[in-house]
Amino acid sequence: MSEVLDSYPQLLRGAWVTVQLTVCGAALALVLALLFGLAGASRHAWVRGLNRVYVEFFRGTATLVLLYWFFYALPLVGVRIDSTMVAAVLALGLNVGAYGAEVVRGSLKAVPAAQYEATVALNFSPYQRMRRVVLPQGFALMLPPFGNLLIELMKGTAIVYTVGLADLARVSKDVQGSTGETVAVFSVIPVLYFVIAQVLLLFVRYAERRVDRMLGRRPSRGPSLGTIAAGAPGTEAAG
């Protein structure tokens, strides 16, 4: 056990790679989710079609297969992604972004029609309606499933192990190799992931409380079937 603890600089570096992948992947996923989520709520059928193609395709592929494809197949057709990190962030962001887009679309749809009617009565422009009324309310609905997706993304980062990026999973294998402490390493690593997850969840809860206060709502208790379904890999958003 002590040998494992002695290799803490390595473990910390691995954890840092995992955190970096999570944050960058989440940033990309958020942008894609908003972009394609709004597209899914569009009045134009072809824009909605864009949303469908993106969502169905990237939810349908396994992240690891996508990563392998970026890593092994794409260079052969002349597209070279130089950094493994970039390839991993792309694979994770594109995949989680697809789930996020469904969350955004579902949440916007779940804002009561009366709110929309009120904005028409007040003669808001479509942009104002979205920016001032629909998005802020939809955002509160998005946050809990977004929190679930963030954890999914963090867990997803472990796939970079297979392409040699020195994240927490890779480091665990290396330390196991150098120390031979199989039981200790492979027991400590899940705990480190769990700690990262709990820290991420703290941020999510904080954001949820902020938004709930902004809308003057009481924080909701346990998740309903709807929110679980929305955050589940491969599902529609609530709404």
Partner: peptide
Amino acid sequence: EFIRCTPLIPQLFFVYYV
């Protein structure tokens, strides 16, 4: 909660090697 919050790959290592 613990199992849900940790990735499959380290869990696979645990089951297969530990």
